[in-house]
Every structure is written in C-alpha cells, then in structure tokens.
C-alpha cells in the first residue's frame, strides 16, 4: 500500500513559487548582474548597441541639423544630456568635455570624434541659452555641438531610446542619470561611461573613429 504523502503538493507549490521568483529576478537583474536600472542599461548597451532615431536639433547658432550624421567627418559622438541652468553635475560634465576638447585639439589632427551636449530643458534652453553655455565652456562649434531637440516628441523619444530618466529635483532643477554616451554616425548607442571615466570614453571613441 502506498503511504500517503501529504507534503508533496505543498513542496510542489513551493518549488513552482521558487522557480517563478528565480526566473523573474534573473530577468530583471540580467542574471543577477545589475540591481539598479542604470547598471542594467549600461550592461545592455555594452552587450548590444541600441539604435537611436535620427534627431533634429537646434544648435547654439540657431541652425537646425539632424544628428547623428550632420557632420560628414564625424565617426563617433560623445553625447551627454544637460540643462544649461544646471548648477552641479552638468558643470562637471561641461568641464570634462572642455578638457576632452582640449586634448582632441592638442593632437593637431582630426580624430573624427565629435561632442554633443543635448539639452532636455526645452522650455528654458533657447539658442541664446545654448550659446551662453557653449561660450562658458569655450565649445568649438566645429567639434562640440550644444543643441536642443526641436520637438517634445523627439526629446521624449531620444530619452526613452537611450534609457535616460529626467526627474525634477524639487529645487527648480532636474536630476538625471548623467553619463557619457558613445554614439556612431548611424545613430547606434554603443557604450555608456561614468562621468569620472571621461578619458576612457574619449579613448573608446577615438578607437571607434579610427
């Protein structure tokens, strides 16, 4: 006679619960490698490039252009998201780009790397504001575009595609996952670097462009 096994259904239910939870957690964390959305975004981009739609922008001189192939000499873009009123993180970003621009210029030959500071503050950042920002960091317009998307829809699409989340900081400004994005002229986002790793970002882009 078979002995009754009253615990079997319970153990099966526990097994299924554990299995489903494990699968859900593994999916969310990309196999337990990333516990924040920002880490997951960077891993995802590093593993397979993310396509960005062509982006129509207005730059500091008031010109309308389409990134990412606006400059035929550009073979790699270093892209950051900014708002020109930003007091902290974007200031650091501006200074870093200024340094990178200097190191590109100091080589004396075209590295085919271009910089883009894309504003997400469409209400405030007019061409005049962008020009002021460009001037503050001595952006060379041939190398460094300071620009803002021409429509809210284009901006929203860019942020969604690149995984950038902008939130209000409660002090009249914004907070966002600031990083340096490497984008090819065909609009492929191929790498994301921490702000502190800006020299590595440049090295990566130079390598990509050569």
């Amino acid at each position: 006679m078979n002995a009754p096994r009253p615990l079997l259904p319970t153990l099966a239910a526990v097994g299924v619960t554990l299995g489903v939870a494990f699968a859900a957690a593994a999916h969310l964390t990309l196999g337990f490698r990333a516990f924040t959305a920002e880490d997951a975004r960077r891993i995802r981009v590093a593993e397979s490039a993310v396509a960005l739609s062509p982006l129509e922008v207005v730059d500091a001189s008031g010109r309308t252009r389409t990134l990412w192939n606006a400059d035929p000499a550009a073979r790699a873009w270093l892209v950051t998201f900014v708002y020109t009123r930003c007091p902290s993180a974007c200031l650091a970003l501006g200074t870093e780009f200024q340094q990178l621009q200097r190191s590109v210029l100091s080589t004396g030959k075209d590295s085919h790397v271009r910089f883009a500071s894309v504003s997400f503050d469409r209400t405030h950042d007019t061409s005049a504001e962008l020009a002021r920002y460009a001037e503050r960091f001595r952006a060379d317009p041939a190398l460094w575009s300071v620009a803002v998307p021409t429509t809210d829809a284009a901006l929203a699409k860019l942020l969604a595609e690149s995984g950038v989340v902008v939130i209000r900081d409660g002090l009249g400004g914004y907070t966002h996952n600031a990083a340096i994005h490497v984008v090819t002229p065909s609009g492929k986002l191929v790498a994301i670097f921490d702000l502190e790793r800006y020299s590595e970002a440049l090295a990566f882009a130079v390598n990509l462009a050569s």
Binding site: P6, L7, P9, T10, A12, A13, V14, T17, L18
Partner: peptide
C-alpha cells in the same frame, strides 16, 4: 492541501 503548515504562502 498545497499549503501545509503555511509553507507555500510564507515562501510566496
């Protein structure tokens, strides 16, 4: 029957 001693519910 699937939750003897409350094991499955507590696990979930």
């Amino acid at each position: 029957p699937f939750d003897r001693y409350g094991l499955a519910g507590w696990t979930l």
